[in-house]
């Protein structure tokens, strides 16, 4: 690690496991449930949050000494919203197709509490470089869970991955379906996302006993 000191590197690696934003800090749940029926949407969301959280953390960190504490929540929310709206407008003008894919997520990104949570917990008290790393790390940890949940929900729910029919065609009865396999349409519904995240927490905590709550 020539570029990053040990302490800085931990900012990126910690959120992957021991301090994961979704399974430990309980942040950003809404979006983890809303868009994980499809692997592609999970990836798009993960990348958007990576961008917004990285940039937002830097902006808030730069402003941390001039923000009045009484109205800091408004300021934080407005910074995220402005960032997201500008990106949305620019995409609409120059990459219309991409903006259509992202358009549905705009509201979810602004209200994603992972963003507010990291502003409040980290960026307000730390310098821009460390805040940037913290933002990237947390967004990655968030993205990993999103992609795992999206993977299982799409595979078991529609029998596809990224839209490719990996298990065969359910109507033509080819591949696995020839043996009587059926898609579990239930996996596509949001309650199953909750249960899948619950199972991820279960696995994670049985591997790392220190995380168990009493």
């Amino acid at each position: 690690m020539g570029l990053l000191s040990k302490k800085d590197a931990a900012l990126i690696t910690d959120p992957f496991a021991d301090n994961n934003p979704i399974t430990i800090q309980v942040l950003g749940i809404c979006s983890a449930l809303a868009i994980t029926a499809e692997l592609k949407a999970s990836i798009v969301m993960a990348v958007s949050v990576l961008f917004v959280l990285g940039a937002g953390n830097v902006v808030i960190s730069l402003m941390r000494n001039i923000i009045p504490s009484k109205i800091r929540i408004i300021v934080q929310l407005i910074v995220v919203a402005t960032l997201v709206i500008i990106v949305d407008q620019v995409l609409k003008a120059f990459a219309y197709e991409l903006s259509k894919t992202l358009g549905a997520f705009i509201g979810l990104i602004i209200t994603n509490c992972i963003i507010m949570g990291r502003f409040e917990a980290f960026a307000l008290a730390n310098g821009p470089w460390r805040s940037f790393l913290d933002g990237i790390g947390n967004a990655l940890g968030y993205g990993v869970i999103l992609i795992i949940v999206g993977f299982f929900r799409e595979l078991l729910g529609s029998g596809t991955l990224l839209g490719f029919k990996v298990l065969g065609d359910p109507i033509e009865k080819t591949g696995l379906y020839a043996f009587g396999y059926e898609n579990n349409g239930f996996m596509l519904l949001a309650p199953m996302a909750l249960i899948v995240v619950g199972i991820i927490i279960w696995i994670q905590r049985s591997r790392n006993v220190a995380l168990i709550e009493d």
Partner: peptide
């Protein structure tokens, strides 16, 4: 659509 659930 403007914002229907992805995948559904």
């Amino acid at each position: 659509h403007k914002g229907e659930t992805a995948g559904l």
